[in-house]
Amino acid sequence: MFELRLVQGSLLKRVIDAIKDLVNDANFDCSSTGFSLQAMDSSHVALVALLLRSEGFEHFRCDRTFSMGMSIANMAKMLKCASNDDIITIKADDGTDTVTFMFESPSQDKISDIEMKLMDIDSDHLGIPDAEYEAIVRMPSTEFGSICTSLSTIGDTVTIAVSKQGVTFSTKGDIGSGNITCRQNSSTEKPEEATIIEMKEPVVLTFALKYITTFTKATSLSSQVTISLSSDMPVVVEYKIAEMGHIRYYLAPKIEE
């Protein structure tokens, strides 16, 4: 028996929106710890790791650890039946090949029961080693999103360079080139507007913009994004989900031949 209840149902809608352009099908791992997922994009260049801790749910029951294979696109379709202020309950029983989503309006005057077929998904689970990163940039997630959108109109790749001067995002395309530098700004009264750079070593890495831009679909989950970089390593783009967990995207760099 697996059952979880999330009063802030829009959060699940936003989480699924944040992964549906990257991943087609995925196994959701259910355990007493929480509801989690690890999946790669179809070309195995990017990986997304989601964690929603059990303590973040109003009700969480998971009698045994198991995985639910779901099509993310179908899940997004089912969640379209939920209003943003609905309470969402997800239920699955042992041995069944379906999952039930229940959407309750806050005033309890409308209840939707949606059943979705589960899938058998053969997916590799990757071990992600704990790493010390050479540079960690924390910045407003909307700022990061708009930088990625702006640069992707010019080029296909983004070079992220962290130095004492700040973090520079640059691109080059057929029509020209552009670079945007953000300096450390921790003096702001609003912590969500701060840009903070922790740097042990200067780092310069290049990534495909189409993936990074997909990651920014998670912008509504967190006011801040954390970008962790080390030379010749995948970048980690993390959005914290308040009181529940996080969504982390890993992207392998492009390396010069």
Binding site: H44, G127, P129, P234, Y250, A252, K254, I255
Partner: peptide, 14 residues
Amino acid sequence: LTFQVCIHDFFFLS
């Protein structure tokens, strides 16, 4: 010229 590395090159199968 740059080439795209795969995520498998960094993270191991568990």
